[in-house]
Structure formats: C-alpha cells, structure tokens
C-alpha cells in the first residue's frame, strides 16, 4: 500500500468564494462555521501549488502539483509535477474523499486506498488530509462554540472553538479557529492533540489573503508543528475559479495520464 499520500484539499483553504457581504454581529457560532465551510469549499477550482517542508533537521523539501476540484470539494484530482522522484504520481478522491485512488507511474499501478490512508502525512509534510477539513468535516466531526472576537494577523476575527463530537473519528480533540469577520476566511487555526485537549500540536497561519477576480484567496499558508519543531509552507502559483471542469477529469482513466 502506498506510503506516500497526497491531499488536495490543502488547496481548498486557499480557495474562496466571492467576498461575502458583511453580516450582522449577531451570527451564531454554527452560522459562522457554516459560512466558513462554504468559503473553503469552492464549486470548481484549478491550481498549481508549491509546498515547502522545513524538517526538524533544517532540511528543505519542495513539491509542486496541479490540482483540480469540483462540486465543492466532492471531487478532487491532484498530480505531482515536482520533485522528480514523485513526478506523475496522482491521486483521485471522490465522494468527499470517501473513495481514494492513487496512481504510481513507476509501476503503472492504480490502487484504491481505504480512508484511513488520510491519516498518513503528505510526503513527510506537517499536513494530513483531515487537517484541512475535507468536505464538511468541520461541521460533521466537531461541535462549535463562539469564544468571542479577536484581532488575528491584523484581521478582525471571530474566535471559534470546535470540539470533537463523541462519536467522531477526528484526529484532534479540539480546534481553535480565527475566522475573518468580513469574508469568513479562516486565517488561523490551532490543532490540539486527540488525547489531550490542552496539548497544542500544530498552528496554521494563512498569509497574503488577496482578492483575485472577486475571490478572496490565501496565497500562502504555513503549518507549524509544535511537537516536531518542523514547518510546512504552501504557496499558490496559479489559481482559476469557476471553470467548466468536465467529469472525465475525475476518472481513473485520467488519473493514469
């Protein structure tokens, strides 16, 4: 089974719907989370992104990939362009990543993976698939609570706590999110250990949030791993929204191209 797993929805936190008009101050935490969930799940997107991993020993690893997303993240295809050793590897995720197929060009083999493969880190990075809240995970797996309002990264934000539901299989006990009040974009997130709600494992910060073609977009983000003292940065090199992406893109046939 594959050891190297790729997770396209990393992109989704960088991809947004058009700026949402300012809302009244009386939104409930559930309404805020719902709107944030809409923001990070675009209808369609096509992007080229670059991942840079700084390891605990200070070494740097870089990955570049193409990504295609449709139906608010329900369909995803990602294909590595760099590094050379991973070039051509591709992953198809359908049904909000309940169905995953990986393609390995060295063996010309397509393999269906079980969903537990999402727990594997992405090419040694500090991200795992579920870090980014695939599909509606932030709504389905966690209950939410509004902690107040706070300034974060120079944005006025809602501070929301997401606590793992009892029957959830989520990898974290709780999350703290800072959601920009103006556009419901999650500018920062703290991840706490599954078994210790006080133990901060990772911190995600999004930078350079730009309005591109009317769409607020986080052009860069960094995940800081507080346990291993490592960090992974992601940068959008190209991004297009609201494209007419044919369903044939999200097929096993296209995976092998």
């Amino acid at each position: 089974m594959a050891n190297k797993i790729i997770f396209p929805l990393l992109l989704l936190s960088l991809v947004n719907f058009p700026i949402i008009k300012t809302y009244a101050e009386t939104l409930t935490s559930q309404e805020i989370v719902n709107k944030m969930n809409d923001v990070i799940n675009p209808q369609t997107a096509q992007a080229k992104a670059k991942i840079t991993i700084i390891t605990s020993s200070g070494k740097e690893r870089t990955f570049i990939y193409d990504s295609f997303t449709k139906d608010r993240g329900e369909k995803n295809l990602i294909r590595y362009l760099e590094p050379k050793r991973a070039k051509g590897q591709a992953m198809l995720m359908l049904n909000n990543a309940d169905d995953i197929w990986a393609y390995f060009p060295r063996t010309k083999r397509v393999r269906k993976l079980a969903t537990h493969a999402k727990r594997q880190n992405w090419e040694g990075s500090d991200f795992s698939y579920e870090d980014m809240g695939s599909g509606d995970a932030f709504i389905d797996e966690y209950k939410n609570k509004l902690l107040g309002e706070e300034k974060k990264e120079n944005y006025n934000c809602y501070k929301i706590e997401l606590e793992k539901k009892k029957d959830s299989d989520a990898g974290y006990s709780r999350l703290i999110m800072w959601i920009i009040k103006d556009n419901f974009f999650p500018v920062a997130m703290n991840y706490y250990a599954r078994k210790d709600p006080q133990f901060l494992k990772k911190v995600l910060i999004q930078y350079e949030i730009k309005d591109i073609d009317g769409v607020p977009t986080g052009m860069k983000m960094t995940m800081y791993n507080k346990t291993d003292n490592t960090q992974t940065s992601m940068e959008l090199l190209e991004i297009k929204y609201n494209l007419d992406l044919d369903d044939s893109i999200f097929s096993e046939r296209n995976l092998k191209k």
Binding site: A114, H116, A117, K118, R119, Q120
Partner: peptide, 10 residues
C-alpha cells in the same frame, strides 16, 4: 487487510 493509525503507523 490494512490500517493506518493516528500518527502514521501502518
């Protein structure tokens, strides 16, 4: 059969 634990152990 296979399984991945939280933490990446496979």
């Amino acid at each position: 059969i296979d399984y991945t634990f939280i933490g990446g152990t496979y």
